[in-house]
Write a protein that binds this DNA or RNA. Structure first.
Lengths: 154, 154
DNA sequence: TATTGTTATACTCTATAACTATA
DNA sequence: TATAGTTATAGAGTATAACAATA
């Protein structure tokens, strides 16, 4: 702010968004390394997980839960279906919707993925106390949860 | 598996990495919307900012600061150079290195970008108290800063 | 040998637009 | 009209591999 010349390290270090981006990148890279054997991305695991929790879920629901575009969701679901992990059928009640469910193969892979996620989370959380983890949960939630109006300031 | 538990919301909500990803996505989307008029991405702003702070900086330095691959850095620098925002010349001391600097156009655009970043940060931080912002800084830093060994547990 | 830059390649994510089918 | 899905397209980010020039 009032600083005039920050040789070496500028005020860029004071940008919260940057640290959020770097933290996300670090966690993302760790994820990729530790999920290479399962050949699953973060998004794909999330979709498998949600589908396992809520059989019959539609793509629109996935998109809303994971803040994804419908087209993006479509791509991920299509990939998982092509790998035989997810099955699709028309929803009986509303024939516009696709009812998604895991195949047995998908169930098995989700089990492995959950175990890998647990390890991944352990790696992430070991650097924090339980109280710090709870704090981080609450603060991050306030960034992405639409409690106050998302764009009121615009 | 019928009737047990977590109808609607499963334990996936308890994954810290997911909340970090969603928070990053929310901030990222806000950034894109509010930087459309400048036609700059987060990475591009970061590179401009660092180059402005440290004229003569090399691509390797940028890559290390922003945790990017050399090839990724190359792509970003190339884009900025093509737009006339950055100038490149060989480093006199070490002729392998490219010494980067902003052009006058780049300086001007960086000024606008910094103002837009300030607004963006305001949007992000208004939901927090000053103490919460400081906490978030500290916690995020411990995720991406290589203080403890990054991969000791692997 | 190691480092720096460069090019080529590939995949994921993201977003927009236009289209079909159903409500 | 509105919603759900689909397809096509495009750009950004990420990463790897291979290569040339320099240290």
């Amino acid at each position: 702010m009032a600083g005039d010349h920050e040789r070496g390290r500028g005020a860029i270090d004071a940008i919260l968004g940057l640290h959020l981006r770097l933290a996300h990148g670090a966690v993302s890279r760790h994820f990729v390394r530790h999920f290479a054997h399962l050949a699953l991305t973060q998004k794909q695991v999330s979709v498998l997980w949600l589908t396992g929790d809520r059989p019959g879920i539609a793509q629109t629901d996935l998109a809303r839960c994971l803040r994804m575009d419908r087209a993006t969701t479509m791509g991920i679901v299509h990939t998982l279906e092509a790998r035989g992990l997810i099955r699709r059928g028309r929803d009986a009640g509303d024939r516009r919707r696709m009812a998604l469910a895991l195949t047995p193969t998908g169930e098995a892979l989700l089990g492995e993925a959950k175990a890998a996620i647990a390890e991944h989370e352990r790696w992430l959380c070991t650097r924090f106390t339980d109280a710090e983890v709870a704090t981080l949960f609450a603060l991050l939630r306030r960034i992405h949860e639409p409690e106050s109006d998302d764009d009121a300031s615009d």
